[in-house]
Design a protein around this nucleic acid. Structure first.
Length: 757
DNA sequence: GTGGGATCGGTTTTT
DNA sequence: CCGATCCCAC
């Protein structure tokens, strides 16, 4: 078995000792994925039935990647292996088992948007103020409860939670939680958390189900164990409770999902639950230069809450880490682009060797613009995923409704799209009736004649119900693709998009075609991993089951020689020869909300640790002096994380000084940074703005930076009138060559409301 | 009930 | 800057 020869001693041991509980602590670049894949491949090679192996990963990408690697070693033998994300694997289990809890086998999966929108409508129905009951917060609280295995009843009974909710002026949260669960259930829908919670509940309540999976999955392996939450660990622990062949792979230093309920405690609990477990520590780094490895070690030592571990490497020393300060976010984009072009020319790097990593998705803009200007091909990962686009969600809503007409979110989305004369008032009435009669909205619609409805509306609703029912009748007669196409045509959805010839419209049409393609692929894909316990299904229903769990960007586009842009979170598990970690500013990375708690700050530090350890050869850290965030100009201080890297590993000098990007070391490093002045807003009511100069800020630095952006965007201009008071004010600006434009001033930010004279 | 314009408000990270 | 929402004229 030649694959074993590629491994070092620890790695080989970790691959070969297949039996019993095993913990593999694997630092960045230590060949973690390799060990995990080889371990699975090895299991198959020594004769373990792939059907009895359960491998859980954190992302679809990781699962796919690993499956490919295993198949390249084992070939067809690897078929039938149970591998996927927690959510996708247990969604499959629930398709079989959830009817025991009263869910339909074709239950819908609500994504974050669906679930938020449902919460929103419940808040509205209860006549609560959505300024206080912010849907996102309520959703977060419900999610946290589910992840801690707290049911609505337990929530209501818990005095601590009640006190906390009352303190936050949201006493009805408990009730909302209950209503939310009821509504999901009635809609035949589960949200992401339900997939885990319900799996747990079923294993808990139905011993025969637990027995079945305990004996089916003789080997359980979990990747990115540090990112699992309480429920996830609980589920796998139960499943592995008979054979004890449970392997967890992870690195506490790379735990970056605590905000989502992941807990490092799982690592500690694991050694407590399996005191006899074997532990392997993979500390040799094969990825990065000594400089990068050293920087990473030094950085992470600032965290108190960390298992002792030190990564090391035999790789070359490497270049110092370059630290670059730019005047603005746009300059940052330009500088990085220049740097990429230079390295391509001088050192013959390819575009695909570069990654630009940022803290928030919103930061991608400046880089996109600069890269596009220089015709550098790039690809953005994450952000708005394919399946979150409006046109896709609309289309999918029809498909979902066909499968499960009780799906409330799908129904509300398309009941009047394309417009068919069913307005908001009617929809509200239906909702209220449904709630009052304890039915789903579909029950009301399908039986609309029983209610007193104006003839015109009644007609529209009946036609709608008839259409959906006609689709349902075809379910057993057509394959997924034909039916989807038929639905698109009948509803005029495709025609509507086709007629839109704007750039966005064409794009939307193409997206829908893309969706249809993927349905076709799904229909024709015959790689069946059939199994009596969990039969594979190729119908429209099965397609939809998967769709909610996909992030959609998995499909590689034709051109792969592209610069990659993504958040640090999305970069986990990846590596690149050259990495730019950008936007390294206090309040951004580390993020503003992490600065109040030590734990959160440590998570940010781990995130930065993940970011820099993606780099193989060259690492650049950049930050911008000024940046627009929610339309406001912000001055920034360099991130504290920059200071935590030993000076001898870094190079601040020569930073593009020849290109006028400004001095490398910030001038206010040890003094008070200038702050955006907001005092003028409060006095704005009585203050008449001066007749000239677009800014009333009295901070000269702010004025200066503001003017720069202003001129860059609009050229020379002069304010001739301002109306309004408060934060938003409309200014008429006279431009030398463009006439007069109306511009909205928001604090110091300019927004065009209307262009032209 | 529809559609357009004005206005307001807001931001981490993801399955 | 862009999406959600409000308001108003058809």
């Amino acid at each position: 078995m030649n694959y074993l020869e590629e491994l070092n001693d620890v790695q080989r041991e970790a691959v070969l000792s297949t039996e019993g509980p095993t913990q593999i602590i694997a630092g960045p670049g230590s060949g973690k994925t390799r060990v995990l894949t080889y371990r699975i491949a090895h299991l198959i090679n020594i004769g373990v039935d792939p059907f009895s192996i359960l491998a859980l990963t954190f992302t679809n990408k990781a699962a796919e990647n690993m499956r490919r690697r295993i198949e390249s070693i084992c070939g067809a033998k690897a078929r039938g292996l149970f591998m996927g994300t927690f959510h996708s694997v247990f969604a499959r289990v629930l398709r079989v088992e959830a009817p025991k809890m009263g869910y339909p086998p074709d239950f819908t999966i609500y994504d974050t948007d669906d679930s938020r929108s449902l919460i929103k409508s419940i808040i509205k129905e209860r006549n609560l103020d959505d300024k206080i009951y912010k849907p996102a917060l309520v959703q977060w609280r419900i999610s946290a409860a589910k992840n801690s295995l707290i049911t609505p009843d337990m929530y209501a009974a818990d005095p601590d939670l009640r006190i906390e909710d009352e303190r936050q002026r949201r006493p009805e949260t408990s009730l909302l939680y209950k209503m939310y669960c009821d509504r999901c259930f009635k809609a035949g829908a589960m949200d992401f958390d339900d997939l885990l919670l319900n799996t747990h509940l079923i294993l808990d309540k139905f011993p025969e189900v637990l027995y079945k999976y305990q004996h089916k999955f003789r080997y359980v392996l979990i990747d990115e164990f540090q990112d699992t939450n309480f429920v996830q660990y609980d589920i796998v622990r139960r499943i592995a409770d008979v054979f004890h062949n449970i392997t967890v792979v992870g690195d506490d230093a790379q735990s970056i999902y605590a905000f989502r309920g992941a807990t490092i405690d799982n690592i500690l609990h694991f050694t407590r639950d399996y005191p006899d477990c074997k532990v392997f520590k993979l500390e040799q780094n094969y990825r990065s230069t000594q400089v990068i490895v050293k920087a990473a070690n030094e950085l992470i030592h600032n965290n108190k809450n960390q298992l002792q571990k030190e990564i090391w490497t035999r790789n070359e020393k490497g270049e110092p880490i370059k630290i670059i300060k730019t005047p603005s976010d746009n300059d940052e984009g330009r500088w990085v682009t220049d740097s990429i072009l230079e390295l391509c020319m001088r050192d013959h790097y390819r575009y695909s060797d570069f990654a630009i990593l940022y803290r928030t998705n919103a930061q991608s803009r400046a880089f996109e613009e600069a890269l596009r200007r220089h015709n550098v091909p790039y690809r953005i990962y994450g952000g708005m995923s394919f399946y979150q686009r409006k046109e896709i969600k609309d289309y999918l809503a029809y498909l979902k409704l066909t499968i499960n007409p009780h799906d409330e979110e799908a129904l509300k989305r398309i009941i009047n799209y394309p417009a068919r004369g069913i307005g908001q008032t009617t929809i509200d009435k239906i909702t209220i009736t449904a709630v009052n009669e304890n039915k789903s909205m579909w029950d009301v619609i399908a039986n609309i004649r029983a209610y007193n409805v104006a003839p015109r509306t009644l007609n529209a609703i009946e036609e709608f119900a008839l259409m959906i029912n006609s689709f349902r009748a075809l379910l057993s007669k057509m394959n997924a693709y034909d039916l989807a196409l038929h639905i698109g045509k009948t509803t005029k959805l495709i025609a509507e998009l086709y007629s839109d010839k704007t750039v966005e419209g064409v794009n939307r049409y193409e997206n829908v075609q893309e969706l249809l393609n993927s349905i076709k692929e799904f229909t024709e894909d015959d790689e069946v991993t059939s199994d009596d316990a969990l039969p594979a299904d190729k119908g429209l229903g099965a397609f939809l089951q998967n769709v909610a769990l996909l992030t959609g960007d998995e499909k590689e586009k034709s051109n792969t020689d592209t610069v990659k842009l993504m958040t640090v979170h999305a970069a986990k598990g990846l590596e690149f020869p050259v990495v730019y970690v950008v936007g390294l500013e206090e309040n951004l990375f580390p993020s503003m909300q992490s600065l109040y708690s030590a734990e959160d700050l440590e998570e940010e530090r781990r995130l930065f640790y993940v970011a820099i350890t993606r780099a193989e050869k060259k690492l650049f850290l950049t930050y911008a002096n000024t940046r627009y965030r929610n339309g406001q100009l912000h001055f920034s201080e360099p991130s504290r994380f920059i200071d935590e890297i030993p000076r001898e590993l870094t190079n601040y000098a020569g930073i593009a000084a020849d290109k006028n990007y400004g001095p490398a070391v910030p001038s206010w490093r040890n003094s008070t940074p200038p702050r955006a002045n907001t005092s003028h807003t409060s006095s704005a009511r009585t203050h008449t703005p001066p007749a000239e100069g677009p800014f009333t800020a009295d901070d000269p630095a702010l004025l200066q930076a503001g003017m720069e952006v202003f001129h860059e965007k609009f050229g020379e201009g002069k304010i001739i009138a301002i109306e309004g008071a408060g934060t938003n004010r409309i200014a008429a600006v006279q431009f030398a060559d463009l006439g007069i434009k109306k511009i909205m001033l928001k604090f110091a930010r300019l927004k065009i409301i209307r262009s032209g004279v």
